[in-house]
């Protein structure tokens, strides 16, 4: 009986080793929240993993750094071959756990944000300043076309700096830098809310405080949707620009209300797919780019064909 138990235990503990020996890479994909962006990055990873015959494990760290450490340690103990991860605190707290995993020979690929360390084999991300600039250029063109004679052009911004300050600030700066030098452009109000149900309240308050506002900008989907709906409720004709694209936002761009003018989106599917591709390449010993910036896509209601084309791909 004792021999049987020993053999059974040995078999159980040998299972992972046997499985790994089967020449199939195992890659862990780690995101920090369950939203559309993160979900789509995982879909990008999944598509490459299926194509390449890689075993993909996924986790969500639920915006908790302690859980991030726990998940990374668990995957390291399990002996995965690579980890593709977006960090909660890339500047400091996220480093030790992935460093320990890297020291065990696990390849680390960063996506969405960049770790303040040199050991990840690759980083795949968008540039939030460029995303903001994409919509900023559209706003600048709109201001020149519609407010050419105006002495003062009042702008309001809904950001989400209370949730993710560096990301939100980069998007805001990228937008603002494109329009700030146009004569008369003035930032009259700024509020923060990452979610639509709160952003709509703040945008409505801003419209009340500045009934003559000329333009609004939402730094993420929540701020953008909140701004568009607040403008719609007010009955005013205030143009809105923003960041992010989903089914609802594409609907705003196609709507006859003429409120949302343009929005720039990251390409989360491509970010996830490239992160997985680079993980596999590094495992195969192939060269990978140390840093890849995935460009954003700007859609404007001035280009309805592009909006219609994008609408076919958005869930």
């Amino acid at each position: 009986m004792k021999k049987f138990v020993t053999a059974a235990l040995a078999a159980v503990f040998m299972l992972p080793v046997v499985a790994q020996a089967a020449d199939k890479f195992t890659v862990a994909g780690i995101v920090f929240q369950e939203d559309q962006f993160m979900k789509t990055t995982l879909l990008g990873m999944k598509s490459v993993a299926e194509k390449e015959g890689v075993n993909l494990l996924t986790s969500n760290t639920s915006n908790q750094i302690s859980k991030e450490v726990e998940v990374v340690n668990t995957y390291a103990a399990r002996g995965v071959d690579a980890i593709a991860i977006t960090y909660l605190d890339p500047a400091a707290a996220s480093i030790p756990a992935v460093k320990a995993a890297n020291d065990k020979g696990i390849k680390i690929v960063s996506f969405n944000n960049k770790l303040a360390a040199d050991f990840p084999v690759s980083t795949v991300m968008s540039d939030n300043t460029l995303l903001g600039a994409g919509s900023g250029k559209e706003a600048a063109a709109y201001i020149k076309a519609h407010y050419g004679d105006k002495k003062e052009i009042k702008v309001a911004i809904i950001n989400y700096k209370a949730q993710l300050p560096p990301e939100s600030n980069a998007r805001q700066d990228g937008f603002w830098n494109e329009i700030k030098d146009i004569p008369g452009v003035t930032l009259v109000a700024e509020a923060s809310s990452p979610v639509a149900e709160e952003a709509i309240k703040k945008a409505a308050d801003i419209i009340t405080a500045h009934p003559d506002i000329d333009l609004m900008y939402g730094c993420n989907a929540g701020g953008l949707i909140g701004a568009v709906l607040a403008v719609k409720n007010s009955g005013k004709k205030i143009p809105v620009f923003g960041i992010d694209l989903d089914k609802q936002i594409v609907g705003f761009l196609k709507s006859d209300d003429n409120i949302l003018q343009a929005s720039t989106a990251q390409d989360p599917f491509k970010i996830g797919a490239l992160a997985m591709e680079n993980a596999i390449k590094s495992l195969k010993g192939e060269a990978v780019d140390k840093e890849i910036i995935v460009p954003g896509l700007t859609l404007s209601r001035a280009n309805p064909e592009a909006v219609a084309e994008y609408a076919k791909t958005v869930k």
């Binding site: 369950e34 639509a196 149900e197 709509i200 949707i225 709906l229």
Partner: peptide, 14 residues
């Protein structure tokens, strides 16, 4: 809330 934001969104109400 669903009516106001014109969608069912799993991130609301946090």
């Amino acid at each position: 809330v669903s009516s106001q934001i014109q969608a069912g969104n799993p991130t609301v109400g946090v």
